Simulated scan of single mutants.
Amino acid sequence: MKPLLFAAAAVLLLPAAAQAQVAAATVPNTFDDPAARARPVTPPPAPAAAPALSPDRAHPESEDILRTLIASAQAGAMDYALMSDDLAAKVREQEATVTPIIDSFGALVAVDFIGSQDRNDLFSVTFANAATEWVIGVNDDGKVAALLFRPAS
């Protein structure tokens, strides 16, 4: 009985660091494996740089089409004739949500071309109540095949 009490008393009297070492004894110790220390640590790869934007527009009429689409959304009647069938179907699904958002931006103040990438044009679009960025992609048939917007960063 005395050895058990002595062991319990020894654990209580041990400094917290020693108790932590006892608890950590179940974790593998790399100091026990010198080869593990000698293995070189490979840093993670650097994130890929974003592709550069071209200063040339992918489609010469993309700004005019974008202005028309924004105006039609704010008027409550999206102009689906400007869109590919695929995009029109997707926009129809989201129209009840997207149209009020675009309308809440207020009056269109400025549309500034930023650049093109992969046949898509990026614009900074400033409204009375919001600053946004828009991506518009026009296909070979002259129809909008991609249309995205987000708050300006």
Rank of each mutant, 00 (worst) to 15 (best):
A73F: 14
A49C: 01
A9C: 12
A20N: 11
A50E: 07
P45Y: 04
F105Q: 04
G76F: 10
D56C: 04
I101S: 08
L82R: 14
I114C: 10
V98H: 03
K2M: 12
A88M: 00
I101R: 09
I102H: 00
S104V: 08
T68F: 09
M83I: 10
K90V: 15
A35R: 13
V98Y: 15
D141A: 09
V135Y: 06
W134S: 05
G142K: 05
D86L: 10
I101K: 10
F6I: 14
A50M: 07
D112H: 06
T99K: 10
A81Y: 02
V98P: 07
I101F: 12
P100M: 03
F105I: 05
D141M: 04
T99V: 15
A110V: 10
D103L: 13
A50Y: 03
L108R: 06
L87R: 00
A25Y: 09
F149M: 02
V27H: 00
A24F: 14
A24M: 11
H59P: 06
T42F: 05
A58V: 01
A7P: 10
A52Y: 06
A18F: 09
Q94K: 02
A23N: 08
A145K: 12
Q117T: 05
D33A: 13
Q74H: 05
S104F: 00
P34V: 09
F31N: 12
F105G: 02
T42V: 03
Q19E: 10
A58T: 04
V11Q: 07
M1L: 04
S104N: 04
M83D: 11
A152F: 15
S84L: 07
D79Y: 10
I102Y: 08
A145I: 12
R92M: 00
L4Y: 02
S84N: 07
A96Y: 07
I102D: 06
A89S: 13
A8G: 04
